[in-house]
């Protein structure tokens, strides 16, 4: 028997080549009009892009401008495409890839409910202090902590709370802004 022939390269493999998956944070300024979020989300689902987190709120009430912050992941070529596809959406003013502009500050807020008694309860409180989490609600058998920070700091805190009686988490998703005096 002959040795098996080498497999031909896949006809699907794109000329873009295989590149590494990266996570990027995009800041998108949009007209705050009905349906604009649906357009953005529909673009991601329709074209098979990932959304790791998405936040949106109006940032200029007079002009009705909202800022959407999207954390997405994919090969750099796909992320470049996402930027261009977003720019095609008519009510979008501006798309900035904060990961490319560099050194953006990213923050997320989480509220974390922990239930427990005795040692576990005091351990939760001690750890919360170490993480600079704020205690925003307490009963004799529960705490709610508020924690702001990078997403991985929140992940770490959540993991520590898990064995101590973690019952519920609410996270806002990432908001991000560039450092320095300039606007994006």
């Amino acid at each position: 028997m002959n040795a098996p022939a080498p497999l031909p390269p896949s006809p699907y493999s794109s000329a873009l080549g295989k590149s590494n998956v990266e996570s990027h944070t995009l800041a998108v300024i949009v007209d705050n009009e009905p349906g604009v979020l649906a357009r953005v989300v529909g673009l991601f689902s329709g074209r098979g892009y990932n959304i790791e987190s998405l936040t949106v709120a109006e940032v200029a009430h007079g002009e009705h401008l909202s800022r959407i912050t999207i954390v997405t992941s994919g090969p750099p070529e796909a992320i470049e495409q996402i930027g261009h596809q977003l720019e095609r959406i008519v009510p979008i003013h501006k798309v900035t890839d904060l990961t490319l502009t560099g050194r953006a500050i990213e923050r997320e807020l989480a509220m974390i409910k922990v239930r427990g008694k005795g040692d576990e309860r005091s351990e939760a409180l001690r750890l919360a202090e170490a993480f600079h989490a704020k205690l925003i609600d307490a009963t004799t058998e529960s705490f709610v902590f508020e924690l702001t920070g990078k997403p991985n700091k929140i992940d770490d805190f959540v993991e520590l709370m898990r064995p101590l009686g973690l019952v519920e988490i609410a996270r806002t998703g990432v908001a991000a802004i560039t450092r320095g005096p300039m606007a994006m």
Binding site: S14, A15, L16, G17, E77, E80, Q81, H84, Q85, E87, R88
Partner: peptide, 8 residues
């Protein structure tokens, strides 16, 4: 968005 979509 047509640029570099399928072919670099």
């Amino acid at each position: 968005s047509s640029i570099n979509k399928n072919v670099r």
